[in-house]
């Protein structure tokens, strides 16, 4: 059973500067949501605040009637690539296996079935032949696919991806977006921090548009229009030029 996720009045500040101001929205299951906004709009911060990874000044997140803390095992998070130490002594298949840790639980080891499941997730992203490579030996797109495989291994219902499409090759991009679409079809809720406006209509069915404050949230056709975009980016937008056929 996948419940709707509701964000109410989230505010975050760093050293007295408000970077996210009173943001609220709600999404039903089966949603692939782009979190959009200009640089410094607080996209990643909003995502981290939703997950309780940074201190909120105010606000709450509910999944159904539960708090995020009660739902942690159903949440998969993929960090920005720049936040990972790619020289860490870990190979691809063990990286994916980390995704099974939440459900394996403390004081227990992953079993054979967990390892097989991790390999299966690795196959889904087309990276099985790299299973024994150290993660730093991969290209950016391949690294991102491995981290998506790790998220899949978590068997979560709610996915949070921070800039997964930055600096990756076309093949990886296609594989990733197809998997995200499959997840949506399976009823999951997926949030993706994103900043490349050209593909917004093609990728997402729903959007959260912020520039510190919430500009608009909802279906793409409602949110992705010139008035909103002008407000968010503080400049004129000719969205016709950005239209991508579905």
């Amino acid at each position: 059973m996948i419940d709707p996720i509701t964000v109410e009045h989230i505010s975050v500040s760093y050293d007295g500067d408000e970077v996210v101001k009173d943001v609220s929205f709600s999404f039903e299951p089966s949603s692939l949501i782009g979190v959009l906004g200009p640089n410094g709009a607080g996209k990643s911060t909003l995502m981290k605040a939703m997950l309780g990874l940074i201190h909120k000044d105010h606000g709450s997140v509910k999944i159904g009637s539960k708090t995020v803390d009660e739902m942690r095992k159903q949440i998969a998070y993929v960090p920005q690539r720049s936040n990972i130490d790619w020289n860490f002594p870990i190979v691809v298949k063990d990286t994916v296996l980390l995704g099974t840790y939440p459900k394996v639980g403390i004081l227990r080891r992953p079993r054979k079935a967990d390892k097989e499941w991790a390999m299966e997730c690795l196959k889904q992203v087309g990276m099985e032949e790299f299973a024994n490579r150290q993660i730093g030996e991969l290209s950016g797109g391949q690294q991102q696919r491995v981290f998506l495989a790790r998220a899949l291994a978590q068997k979560a219902d709610y996915f949070f991806l921070d800039e997964p499409f930055v600096g990756i090759d076309v093949t990886s991009e296609e594989i990733i977006i197809n998997i995200l679409r499959d997840l949506r079809e399976a009823g999951k809720v997926i949030f993706v921090v994103h900043h490349d406006l050209s593909k917004v209509k093609n990728y997402f069915d729903k959007l959260v548009l912020i520039n510190k404050e919430l500009i608009d949230a909802g279906p793409v056709n409602q949110v992705f229009q010139s008035g909103n975009m002008t407000k968010a980016y503080n400049r004129q937008f000719m969205l016709d030029g950005l239209e991508v056929p579905m």
Partner: peptide
Amino acid sequence: ILFFKELLVSSFDETMAAAYG
């Protein structure tokens, strides 16, 4: 030995570790 798993994941990707609790 007992907490090797947790030491590994929190050393490698602390945010992911915190996200899953």
